[in-house]
Design a protein around this nucleic acid. Structure first.
Lengths: 338, 338
DNA sequence: CGGTATGTTGGTAACGTTACCAACCGCGAG
DNA sequence: CTCGCGGTTGGTAACGTTACCAACATACCG
């Protein structure tokens, strides 16, 4: 090995001089070898191997019109397994298109989102995929992004018309609630969260629509929409069950709330606390739902597919194969009965 | 707004001419404004705002000695929530150091890992964090990486001496198995997986050590080490429980195997299949373990912290604050009894 | 054998940025 | 009033790469 430890990365010039050719010939060889004699190509590739040369992608993309091959992805909370799957879906499609992803976690923080987007633009990303933190849209306006295409996932941003992939939140919540109503329940509690205002709102709307359609009372006493984590959800469920008129069923708008409700229900059963053993419908799947002490209907979705769709939408813009019109893809959800 | 839709990103020159100064003055202003008159700075910042200018980070890092501000992160399986948490930990620390992360998923594929590492180097990353796919080490040798520091996480690569963060797999498995032995079990089955050869091996070693130390027989009939997913784990558990002499307890080396075993145990209880209702120790936590039909002891760890430690190790190299010696950090695991 | 088409190779310039140096300014000390 | 110094500004070159053009070699045709 002729490379010295601690040395800078070798450049195309060093490869060229080692192979006894010009940098242009090295460049051509690495670009596929069109119009380069095979024996010369071989000499070049040998020099590349010997020196451990890698093309400097940053220098490459410096030339105008050259894509950087990077996609900026900002999601709200990587600690949520669904977003891990989402990121995986994006990564897969990006890899299929020879792109890499720059990943940032916003933690539902507007300022951090703005910072990430700025940085992504500064790094010349070819496109952006964003789970927005539903603040305002100023930093996402086309004139701020230059000609970098943007795809929103999971949520919309008020006043911003761009390609978007969503779940069928309303329909899923509607059908899930309907299932409870069909089973004879009329007093159905709602557990939801605030953070994802957009999805939370949509899922609540589905719940509400089903309830009113069937003439079931929508009682604020059994609607809790402020729980961000499992513990808060547990407490909310507890308060609801301790009411004089507790709900006989629960619609939970997400994973975190479902787990919290389950904890509380499990505790009551273990400790013999009297009161309801409510049926549960859960938006978002969770493992071992079939082992729960009460029947759980699951409204599941494919976050990985959501990521893939977002990336596919983006690449159709990048390839220029997309129509000009802004598109929204709404992915179906599936319902699994206990 | 004077920016034209579809236009290229504005350059420092355009900002300069708009502000009536030279590009150097813009550069200095953006670098903190040392030795630039306040009123000139203001004019420059105004032009920056008006044009929607972002520094081109790629061009910036082209100059020799300039860091790219990128960290390459390759993990094996983003679909695993633990790796999502791991990535989050890395991202957090990177952000604290003003770095972004380039994320790739290897899917336990050697070729893909090599490809990702090449690409990361080509993009001039300042450092690499890798959950290795335990193939060979050729592409990770220092002479192949130039002077880019590397940190391994979760697993080692045979024959490669680099900074590494691990879990206390052996100790955790040992203590977990001991807990079962203390409870009077002697016939303890083992469920594990192949993919992560390294951790799988270590966890098996902890199990084996505890067993032999107490003189409990290590019976190949109740040791299954080939399950990659929940379904396979379920089948392995089923076969084990159907033996003439089934285990009275199960040590499960990971999440996937635990879920699979639980499914099978739940099925047998629901369907009234006679046979053991084994106690379970699970390496890796899972939610609602307290609601399981048999008592589950959980050996948990903090994947986010693992990611933070990996990144911290890397940045100590980058800052030059690290001692030269190769370091290994082994994070403790916690045991939660049912 | 001359001429043209085709294939191969290299030189030059440019991408956006900033380190370095040179030039210039105003101000205070001698 | 002159000198020198510190603060401010701009020009030049270089980072690594490749598009473009020019130069040259070779093959083929008439």
């Amino acid at each position: 090995m002729s490379t010295v430890r601690g040395a800078r990365q070798p450049t195309i010039k060093e490869v060229a001089s080692r192979a006894g050719v010009s940098p242009m010939t090295v460049s051509r060889t690495l670009a596929g070898g069109r119009n380069v004699r095979p024996d010369v190509q071989q000499r070049v590739m040998e020099a590349v191997r010997e020196l451990g040369y890698y093309r400097n992608e940053n220098a490459r993309s410096l030339r105008p019109g050259q894509p950087s091959g990077l996609i900026g992805v900002a999601i709200t909370n990587l600690a949520n397994p669904y977003y891990g799957l989402f990121a995986l879906g994006v990564e897969e499609v990006a890899a299929e298109h020879g792109r890499r992803i720059l990943l940032g976690n916003t933690g539902e923080d507007d300022a951090r989102e703005r910072q990430l987007v700025s940085d992504f633009i500064g790094r010349q990303v070819d496109g952006l995929i964003l789970v927005p933190t539903s603040g305002d849209a100023a930093h996402l306006r086309p004139e701020r992004l230059g000609d970098v295409p943007l795809v929103l996932a999971s949520r919309r941003v008020p006043g911003l018309e761009v390609d978007t992939v969503l779940l069928d939140d309303v329909g899923g919540a509607y059908r899930g609630t309907m299932a409870l109503l069909d089973a004879g329940h009329t007093r159905i509690g709602f557990l939801g969260n605030r953070s994802s205002v957009f999805t939370g709102e949509r899922r609540y709307r589905g719940y509400e629509r089903a309830m009113t359609e069937r003439g079931a009372p929508v009682d604020p006493a059994i609607i809790a929409r402020d729980q961000q984590d499992v513990d808060a959800a547990s407490r909310a469920a507890r308060a609801m069950f301790d009411l004089a008129e507790p709900p006989t069923a629960i619609f939970s708008a997400n994973n975190r709330n479902t787990i919290g409700a389950m904890r509380e229900i499990g505790r009551r059963i273990r400790e013999g606390v009297p009161g309801p053993r409510p049926a549960v419908v859960s938006f978002d799947d969770f493992e071992l739902s079939e082992l729960m002490p009460v029947p759980v209907t699951v409204i599941d979705h494919d976050a990985r597919l959501l990521g893939r769709e977002a990336a596919t939408l983006l690449f159709s813009r990048l390839d220029g194969t997309a129509e000009a019109r802004v598109r929204t893809v709404e992915l179906p959800v599936s319902i699994e009965f206990p």
